[in-house]
């Protein structure tokens, strides 16, 4: 493969990388919000809420992500008459958010449960409600413990986002395979791999910085 061939492909690869980053950041954002509610639901004394959240996590961790993507893009529209589908980008976002929420929920639940029980007791003894204690005392303390596993999940998601190529999303993976098919030169996967590594490296450093920032009080 010649250098100028790579240079010619670079703009398309970079555009694909931007889509990959967009998908990952937006999905982890919604995944964290939904994951927090699922985690609180799993910790709830209400058996129905706990059961529902358990079922959600069981469903989304127990089936392949690719199947979930297919389901949301191809099968979900069939529930409507006439069939009404979503475009590829929102479908991909929904699938990745729902899937990562299941994993993040368990990460968040473990982090919350690792906070010393004395903290909740102290908060209650000061007259705080359960909600106030969670919001002001327990959840903020779990942030630092959350950062390493969430960083892990983020990087997994960045790579797993390549799966949405199957529904035609032109993220980095799909663009690379298109170029490879068009030019007949599979060596294009080398710069594509370098771009994945560059992205994961940058985000690894971001998460290390965050961890330091939230460690000031220890």
């Amino acid at each position: 493969m010649k250098f100028d061939q790579i240079m010619n492909a670079m703009p398309a690869l970079l555009r694909g990388s931007v889509v990959t980053i967009e998908l990952t950041i937006i999905s982890i954002f919604f995944g964290l919000i939904l994951g927090l509610f699922l985690a609180l639901g799993r910790l709830s004394k209400n058996k129905i809420i706990d059961g529902f959240c358990w079922f959600y996590i069981w469903l989304f961790r127990g089936t392949p992500l690719m199947m979930q993507i297919f389901f949301i893009y191809f099968a979900f529209p069939l529930f409507f008459d006439p069939p009404r589908g979503l475009p590829d980008f929102p479908s991909a976002l929904i699938a990745l958010s729902l899937n990562s929420a299941a994993y993040l929920a368990e990460i968040i639940r473990a982090a919350i449960q690792s906070i010393d029980k004395g903290q909740m007791e102290a908060a209650k003894a000061l007259g705080m409600s359960y909600g106030q204690a969670m919001r002001r005392v327990i959840v903020p303390q779990s942030y630092r413990r959350l950062i390493p596993p969430v960083g892990n999940e983020f990087i997994m998601l960045l790579k797993d986002s390549s799966l949405v190529a199957v529904i035609g999303m032109t993220e980095l993976m799909r663009i690379t395979s298109q170029i490879s098919n068009r030019t007949g030169n599979a060596m294009i996967y080398i710069p594509a791999a370098a771009l994945y590594l560059a992205m994961t490296t940058v985000f690894t450093i971001v998460f290390e910085r965050l961890e330091k920032k939230y460690s000031v009080y220890e």
Partner: peptide, 28 residues
């Protein structure tokens, strides 16, 4: 009823001052 625990149970993510003003501000 104010309570003081064997293991202090201060909120580690807050400064001394923040620990003290937290409950009056949040609860009262």
């Amino acid at each position: 009823l104010g309570m003081v625990f064997q293991r202090f149970n201060l909120f580690p993510h807050m400064t001394v001052l923040e620990n003290i003003i937290e409950a009056p501000m949040t609860v009262k």
